[in-house]
């Protein structure tokens, strides 16, 4: 009995939650009831706590069972579908002229139109020239004078002049000829007399042709046919040296 009357309000309030849930043993539950009967403060607290717990239980029950499961799944599906487009990769940030898309300024648009017109004109000229080309090998056209466009490019230094191109090509051929000539000199000792004589005669003929075309080109640097023949003669010299160096 002493236990019954010795329960303080603090002890009672600690046990109130378990009391309302019905978790307390029968004996301790009786002591709480006796205290509530004599203590108005703890009784008010017990009523408040009970109201809160009842409210909580009611709301928990409402969430556990959806009112319309099919509608709930439709909502979920709609949510997923509405989020899919957002997963499309975002284009990288554009830089430079197209940073603003095709929003060109008036001057940029004008320059673009002029560039397109110039390129298409050049392509048309080239196409017409090829279309009306006479039958035969392209080599036959080499005697023609260069076009205005080519001459302009040469003037501004964007294209090689015929003389520059020829000099560069001949320098390359001469260096190759020097290489093979050195190899021939090392091998020549093992040749028989007939081989040596035939080699010398052919080399002499080629050198004669090279000298002839070189002289013509000195007098007329634009003689494309002599340039072509000189190129061919130097190639033949290179091949002769190469083939005899393999003996």
């Amino acid at each position: 009995m002493s236990d019954r009357f010795s329960m303080t309000c603090g002890d009672c309030q600690e046990l109130l939650s378990r009391f309302i849930d019905g978790d307390l043993e029968q004996e301790r539950s009786g002591i709480v009831i006796e205290h509530l009967a004599v203590c108005a403060e703890c009784t008010v607290m017990c009523d408040d706590l009970s109201a809160i717990l009842v409210q909580c239980r009611e709301s928990e029950v409402g969430e556990e069972v959806p009112p319309n499961p099919a509608a709930l799944w439709r909502r979920i599906n709609n949510l997923i579908e509405s989020e899919l487009p957002a997963e499309i990769p975002v284009e990288p940030e554009r830089k430079g002229l197209f940073a603003r898309g095709w929003n060109l300024t008036f001057s940029q648009a004008g320059a673009a139109v002029l560039a397109i017109a110039l390129i298409s004109s050049l392509l048309t000229i080239v196409g017409i020239r090829h279309y009306f080309a006479p039958p035969g090998d392209d080599i036959s056209l080499r005697n023609e004078t260069p076009s205005v466009f080519t001459r302009v490019l040469r003037k501004v230094g964007l294209a090689e002049t015929p003389q520059q191109a020829r000099d560069r090509r001949f320098r390359e051929q001469e260096s190759a000829i020097d290489y093979w000539n050195k190899r021939v000199q090392t091998r020549r000792a093992s040749w028989n007399a007939r081989m040596s004589e035939a080699f010398d005669r052919n080399l002499f003929e080629i050198d004669q042709a090279v000298n002839e075309y070189t002289m013509i080109l000195q007098n007329d640097p634009d003689d494309q046919l002599s340039e072509e023949m000189l190129d061919s003669a130097l190639n033949e010299k290179m091949n002769l040296l190469r083939q005899f160096s393999e003996l």
Binding site: I139, N143, M229
Partner: peptide, 24 residues
């Protein structure tokens, strides 16, 4: 062409290609 150093042209329908070079 080229003061008679080269002849270019077509014989018949020009169905084949013929290249002849004699340096000297």
């Amino acid at each position: 062409l080229g003061d008679g150093r080269r002849v270019v042209g077509k014989f018949g329908d020009g169905n084949s290609t013929l290249s002849v070079t004699n340096q000297r």
